[in-house]
Design a protein around this nucleic acid. Sequence first.
DNA 1: CGTCATACTTAGCAGGGAAGCC
DNA 2: GGCTTCCCTGCTAAGTATGACG
Length: 581
Amino acid sequence: MCSDDSFFSFKGEKRGRRAFYRGSQEEKYEDGIKWKFLEHKGPYFPPEYQTLPDDVKFYYNGKPVKLSLPAEEVALFFAQMMDHEYTTKEVFRNNFFRDWRKEMTLEERQLIMDLNKCDFGELHAMHKQKVEARKNLSKEEKLVNKEANQKIVDEYGYCVLDHHRERIGNFKIEPPGLFRGRGDHPKQGMLKKRIQPEDAIINCSKDSRIPEPPAGHRWKEVRHDNTVTWLASWTENVQGSCKYVMLNANSKLKGEKDWEKYEVARKLKTCVDAIRAQYQEDLKSKQMGTRQRAVALYFIDKLALRAGNEKEEGETADTVGCCSLRVEHITLHDTLDGQKCVVEFDFLGKDCIRYYNKVPVIKRVFKNLKLFMENKQGGDDLFDRLNTQLLNKHLSSLMPGLTAKVFRTYNASITLQQQLKELLKENVAEKLLSYNRANRAVAILCNHQRAPPKTFEQSMANLQAKIDSRKEQLDLAKKELKQAKKEAKGSSDNKLLIVVEKKKKAVQRCEEQLLKMEVQATDREENKQIALSTSKLNYLDPRISVAWCKNMEVQLDKIYNKTLRDKFAWAIDMTEHDFVF
DNA sequence: CGTCATACTTAGCAGGGAAGCC
DNA sequence: GGCTTCCCTGCTAAGTATGACG
């Protein structure tokens, strides 16, 4: 459907892909090779557990019990979380208690049989005290800590990859603790064990200085695999999944990958019409599987749903994406609020964020959905003949590199571009508001939510109070101006004329400040439950924003903070004002 | 051909510090 | 200059996607 012509050199781009390969030795490697040289110091391990002071005691059944070191460490994990709601949850407590008992000695295990008889009060109090003490450190003490941290970053936070010194993203091994899943996670409260060097695999060049394991330890393995980008990995015990130490987003390798992602999405732009025509056609297919695929694709395209891989039941919270939708997640309405063929979605997506939406769909989709739901229970798969592998196989046959998630990237970026075109404004504050509105339209499309800030109501009220007082001030300033004009009228006294000018300026300044605050209030209110940062970071082609800033004469740092400017350095470097996504 | 493992991107949240406010 | 607010950064969980394996 779409040819595989290279996507180099687009309008509005100073250079194409070559921008990443300045210098003669920096040509792109053969397929799958990620680097030729990689050197680093290995991951940084968290400090060992320090036993409790003698005066801080754990009590069981009212009696003080001196716990063994491993049991004590895990007890403290629980004690530290006691202000949090999930230590009251049944699943959390049970998982914790089961794993805690595994760390106990035989005697401890025989004694400590009931979590409800455990008193962590002193441990909890000690923790709170420590937090408080840390907060109250003097400026100098804080500076000392900061410098110590910086030393760790300097030593472990960088690697050398093909002649470039690069920042590592997460060079610290995750410390042990109690697993906190999102939503109703069946494994919440389980013990996330301490990782030892013996658990860690190191990846680096053969000819590099191999990182030294901490004294008295050895690595699980040292390998030299240049088809992957990670520097170290370990297996996490709660879910049994692999964790990786990887480069920072501002690295060349990550930037290149990011650029490629957006190029694939731009490629989709050139053939999305044909793909849409195709799935419209497929809605009529005689093959049930093809029709299901077409409906799923319709959702993914129109609603920016995620692909929806299968998940192992009981291992994670019950969340779904498009392909894994169940009958119980949608309700069909022949008519609703004056609209025809409305599908009501209600399901938990990634991170247990609720997706709730009422969407009118085309008739053929509606009829197919009715068919798919026939003779099924709520818990049955809506698309029983479809999974993400089948879907992606189909997509990659339509366009090289096309997968389900590309639609999210494409629709997010194209939405931003369109919205920015429509929302044209005069002054900088308003321009930024319209940028945020465009950003918000994308965040809504992608269902990027956040918990309303805890202090939201209060800070909103504070802002409103400020607006009110500024209004009063403005009224006053206007009156004064009027008065000054009156006095100056007919007079040629220069002093009076100067006063008039002064008052004019004051009114103007007041008006500007008022407008700024009102814009801020609107922006904040509209943003209450919406997270803009996720789409900015992951879905919006940065070249759109860079070009917009150039055209609007808005400083880039008004929309991108330092981290984002670093991450998108490639886009800042290559984008001209006439860039079109 | 389904299942599992692997690698990498996407996600929201907490805590701390810098910026903004009076 | 002290206080509050809010933004940034780090953290790590939770997705997507694909290739190996039996």
